[in-house]
């Protein structure tokens, strides 16, 4: 096991941040912590990177205890905090060189590990880190976290504030790193990214709701979700919420996701109800559940 978390609890001034959390990450696995802001993801990262002490429970990273053997952990993990944490007044190259030096290595020594990523930011290597775009900053931060060839990589919301194209590229890079045998623990508030992990833990309000592979989580979901569209979306949500047999209603991109209480559901009844409420251009179709649907239901 690369990461082992057992019954970890942590509170700040009596406010519980995480409560009795347990999970395990296998060696070489890409494991995702999925949950909204304030769910406790960053707290878990900080406990595992030895920055915070848990109030209860034990945890180990790469075989080392997070409390007793914190020094060994600091030597063997790469950590990319949620906030951009490089030196804005140093250039791209200087930042990378600095992190290589403090980890007692050189850029050349582990260049093959960061090559794919670094060639994308190399044209800007003389530019100060503060002047890079969001996506570039994250690529540089990833390079800096990787330069010493860590056994375990911790990425706290690496794609927050990054454009969709860069996000996609970033995840492709993570996949490639995983093939090189690095265990990766990543957190994200974006549900669409969850599907790219080997296994995920869904977290909310400091507790883990479910741990499984994204496919299994979706497969095990037994309710049928309907995509509903109409011209007046806002009124549509209000009216659907008043429908007697509704189980849940929430906006999902272009359309509304609707789940009925009964397993036998007649879409014409709903259509008539909506027509009665003077809705136009009504479309009802069955939708494939996503992680977000599962999450909303938990």
């Amino acid at each position: 096991m690369s990461i082992k978390v057992q019954n970890i609890s942590k509170s700040y001034n009596k406010i519980k941040a995480v409560e009795a959390i347990s999970f395990e990450v296998k060696e070489g696995e890409l494991f995702g912590l999925i949950g909204p802001d304030g769910a406790g993801k960053t707290t878990i990262f900080r406990i595992l990177t030895t920055l915070l002490l848990a109030n209860e429970g034990t945890a180990s990273v790469a075989g080392f205890d997070v409390v007793k053997e914190y020094k060994a952990i600091r030597n063997s993990v790469g950590y990319m905090p949620g906030k951009f944490s490089l030196y804005q007044d140093l250039t791209v190259e200087e930042n990378l060189k600095f992190f290589a030096t403090i980890f007692g290595t050189t850029i050349e020594e582990n260049f093959d590990l960061i090559k794919d990523i670094y060639i994308q930011i190399e044209p800007f290597k003389a530019r100060r880190a503060g002047a890079l775009s969001g996506g570039m900053k994250q690529k540089l931060a990833l390079c800096c976290a990787l330069i010493h060839k860590p056994k375990v990589l911790f990425l706290d919301e690496p794609t927050t504030g990054v454009d969709p194209v860069s996000r996609k590229e970033f995840w492709q890079m993570l996949k490639r790193l995983q093939q090189k045998g690095i265990t990766i623990l990543v957190s994200t508030p974006y549900m669409d990214e969850a599907a790219l992990c080997d296994r995920i833990a869904l977290i909310q309000k400091g507790s883990i709701l479910k741990i499984d592979s994204p496919e299994n989580i979706i497969k095990k979901y037994d309710k049928i979700i309907y995509d509903i569209k109409a011209k007046n979306k806002h009124q549509l949500i209000l009216d659907l919420k008043n429908y007697p047999s509704q189980y849940s209603v929430f906006a999902f991109g272009e359309c509304i996701h609707y789940i009925d209480k009964n397993s036998v559901f007649n879409s014409t009844d709903l259509q008539n109800y909506l027509l009665e409420k003077k809705h136009m251009e009504i479309e009802i179709s069955v939708s494939n559940p996503t992680i977000e649907d599962v999450f909303m239901d938990l």
Binding site: T49, T50, L51, K71, R74, N75, V77, Y79, P81, K83, F84, S85, L86, Y87, Q88, F99, I102, F103, G104, C144
Partner: peptide, 13 residues
């Protein structure tokens, strides 16, 4: 303040 201390702490320094 800039959060770089966090990264420095999680290093062999």
């Amino acid at each position: 303040e800039l959060g770089t201390m966090e990264v420095l702490l999680v290093s062999p320094l």
